[in-house]
């Protein structure tokens, strides 16, 4: 029930168009890259998909994270503008379920976005690299990896957005975090596990170092921890509002 309620609230906020726009922009990155400079990539040694990932994934992830920030801001902006959150508080609905519903919606929307981007990457590989064949298991693995790597970012951003009543404060914190993290070195394992930094990793890179299980387990653990933090925050908030 809460899920459909949350979906209904997002009508006419521009939430879904924002995800769609982000997906199209991110998918345009490899297409444009290949249209303009395909000669430089075709001659590179290695797996076609890895070449494409190395060339494009940084920028695509940046767009993905910016979309997550934006959508987390907007999903809580609908609550805080015109005192929607206070109205929700008098309904017989648990506060935590609202957070859960919003998390589920964001995860679903992001998974659609990631799937679209990965399919575009595969199509690019298929079109420009003559000897490339699509492998469904690889596609699924890449998709699941990217989705799990994004989970901590999603939940942390939702946590920030739920804590700040003004949309621009959460937006500011999100943008500062993206910027700070983009300065960090990507090779360091500990730093690469931080939220906002983990989505930049690709499965091929992590497998090369043999760290894929540590990476996935840490990401899921971070998500659970942040989920518990969100649960506690709802309790604390009740004393102040």
């Amino acid at each position: 029930m809460i899920f459909s309620l949350e979906l209904k609230k997002l009508k006419r906020t521009g939430y879904m168009p924002a995800f769609l726009g982000g997906a199209v922009l991110a998918a345009a990155v490899p297409l444009l890259h290949m249209l303009v400079r395909s000669e430089t990539f075709i001659v590179l040694p290695g797996e076609p998909l890895n070449i494409l990932y190395d060339a494009n994934w940084q920028m695509m992830t940046m767009l993905n994270i910016l979309t997550i920030i934006l959508c987390a801001c907007i999903i809580y902006h609908t609550e805080y503008s015109d005192n929607g959150a206070q109205k929700m508080a008098v309904l017989p609905v648990c506060d935590n379920h609202i957070f859960g519903g919003k998390f589920m919606i964001t995860v679903l929307a992001l998974s659609g976005m990631l799937l679209f981007e990965i399919i575009i990457l595969e199509l690019c590989a298929l079109h420009w690299f003559s000897d490339y064949q699509v492998q469904l298991t690889d596609l699924t693995k890449n998709f699941c990896f990217s989705l799990i790597a994004s989970l901590p970012t999603i939940i942390l951003m939702l946590l920030i957005a739920s804590a700040c009543q003004n949309m621009w404060v959460s937006l500011g914190i999100g943008v500062i975090l993206v910027f700070t993290v983009s300065v960090f070195p990507k090779e360091n394992l500990f730093l690469s596990l931080c939220p906002f930094n983990s989505p930049y990793q690709t499965l091929a890179l992590v497998t090369e170092k043999g760290k894929e299980y540590i990476f996935l387990v840490t990401c899921i653990a971070e998500t659970i921890l942040l989920g518990i933090a969100a649960h506690k925050l709802e309790h604390v908030r009740r004393y102040f509002s």
């Binding site: 521009g14 924002a18 934006l70 801001c73």
Partner: peptide, 8 residues
């Protein structure tokens, strides 16, 4: 008008 599109 919609903040989401402006910020986006």
């Amino acid at each position: 008008q919609a903040p989401v599109f402006f910020v986006g």
